[in-house]
Design a protein around this nucleic acid. Structure first.
Lengths: 334, 334
DNA sequence: CTGAAAGCGCTTACAG
DNA sequence: CTGAAAGCGCTTACAG
């Protein structure tokens, strides 16, 4: 299957390649109506469609961007990607999606390959371990927007949740309901992932603010697959928490599993709030109180920032951190 | 920021572009050790990395594929994409993700643009309304794999669920539990989407097989946002169903919502099975009986098929339909 | 109003 | 063992 090129069209229409190219790029100013017609019908006859790779080579723009998430299976990432794809589709860009699995080596590989493919910019949930690479990109003025996670000393636009506020909303709500022992479960901190760090920190601070003593056995950072064991220990203690904050949806799943298995009554025996909205919050029994992130708005913002960097509208604008406000949805579990 | 090209490397290393290119493509056969060293260090010194767009233009391969789903927000699609991305990443391809929203116009636009970008192949959840376009692609021997949905008269590899079996599993289970009025809720059939059609058809057939009379008020194909109303009507009837099959996860959500709002006891008053595994099945109260699709295996299969078409290993192999087996996970809701 | 020519950054067949 | 040249399919500055 030989594909038809601009030369074929030119020959068929009896004009030069230049003129066809002018036509394709809608530069009709000096084009006679007749030429226009000829080219138009030649294109139709031959079923021609331009080779964008060739155009990209010349124009140094591929109208393609890359998005590197930790894992597309996380609902938050999926929503962010959807918002990004919508925005870029409206602007005639395509998006390449990559899963880095919080693996710095994989992330580095993806960034390199995306650049080699001359992608116009990248939105990344950074692992945080490739600081030198990020710095290099920024020094070259390559469009990069960080999502969900901060990277110190790298001057790039970053979109994330107001994590402190998210925790405040949850804790204050628990306090209002007169809980006195409030626990928290989070994935490990060691991987240096912003939301976990900021939320854990904010949690402790907020308890202090309310002058609630911190029960060491009730503030946990651990691997997802150990959450069940940790909960078991927690609830065999003297003073188990009466309220529990799940720092993200994955943790919430574990808490709900545990509660079900052990027949813990929610909210009578244990109040629960989860950060991250989940699909089943409304119709879970009981309906779940959550702190939701505006995932679509965040994705859209990241897309806008990236496109404006790509269009060079913001070369000298200082890079910023954009914090989005969470919302507490009070339902039945708290 | 001027980027460094193969010419720069050649000059720096004191050799020709050809030789550098040989080096890049690891054709070392006739290369002196010295030349190799020189090029290697030149590349390192200059921080060179090849422009893949230029390579693609020459080689007629972009090592990029496109995946067009209905909506990345559907869990099944996300899982399929993840499997595809994993497989292609191992083979050094990237994947562009597009949401067609079951909109044939959007789908057509995406297919055209992906081809214009010289993507090596496409995996698509077809809307079914662009038959002529699909045919054209196939006639040009362009690599295309269909996912989840059949398109008549288009000779392409297709990966989907054994929908008949999925329904059989559910209905037989209901019958075993001695249900006599069994209902089913599905999204509309008008859009010609394979799973809905096959499942609805299989449902009726399976009831007939068990000599269970078909209660017209209990077999529903309707828009998602009308499911609540339909259920209300259904349960205000003389003989409401005692068992309900939700044809996909979206419908299941509505059924669970309705049950919760109306305090319907599951499974005592109503048994429920949903097709599609859902994240919360295990720890819902009651845990949900589901018929799961092997989404990752299906995604992987589609990826394998596409890559083999791309590599031209299967030019003359007849295109096939690959059916995957669902699994019934009996939990508490049925 | 339109065309010839150069160039984007690679690869490859061929010559030596 | 290595290089000069042509070519992939476009765009664009310039000439006429």
């Amino acid at each position: 299957m030989k594909s038809v090129t601009i030369s074929d069209v030119a020959k068929y229409a009896g004009v030069s390649k230049s003129t066809v190219s002018q036509f394709l790029n809608k530069r009709y100013e000096y084009m006679s109506e007749k030429t226009k017609q000829q080219i138009e019908s030649a294109i139709k006859e031959l079923g021609y469609s331009p080779n964008i790779v060739a155009r990209s080579l010349k124009q140094k723009s591929t109208t393609t961007i890359g998005v590197i998430v930790a894992n597309i299976l996380h609902v938050f990432s999926t929503q962010v990607i959807r918002a990004i794809e919508d925005y870029f589709n409206e602007n005639s860009f395509h998006v390449i999606v990559c899963n880095a699995d919080d693996n710095p080596k994989k992330e580095k590989e993806y960034i390199k390959m995306l650049r080699a493919k001359q992608v116009d910019g990248i939105i990344v949930f950074p692992t945080g371990s490739n600081v030198e690479l990020y710095k290099k990109l920024r020094k070259e003025n390559y469009p990069v927007v960080f999502m969900d996670r901060l990277v110190n000393n790298v001057d790039a636009n970053t979109v994330l949740l107001d994590n402190e506020q998210a925790v405040k909303l949850a804790v204050d709500h628990f306090v209002e309901r007169e809980h006195e022992i409030i626990g928290m479960i989070s994935p490990p901190l060691k991987e240096n992932i912003t939301p976990r760090i900021e939320r854990t920190h904010a949690f402790k601070e907020r308890l202090a603010h309310h002058e609630i003593s911190i029960n060491k056995n009730s503030i946990i950072n651990t691997n997802i697959n150990e959450v069940q064991d940790v909960l078991k220990k927690m609830f065999s203690n003297d003073k188990p928490p009466t309220a529990l904050l799940a720092l993200n949806d994955r943790v919430l799943f574990e808490v709900l599993s545990y509660s079900k298995k052990n027949n813990i009554k929610i909210p009578n025996e244990l109040s629960i709030i989860g950060i991250d909205e989940v699909t089943f919050a409304e119709f879970y029994r009981p309906a779940l109180t959550t702190v939701g992130q505006p995932a679509f708005a965040m994705g859209k913002k990241a897309a806008e920032l990236l496109l404006s960097e790509i269009k060079n509208e913001s070369t000298n604008v200082e890079k910023q951190i954009f914090r989005f406000e969470p919302t507490l949805k009070i339902r039945e579990s708290s």
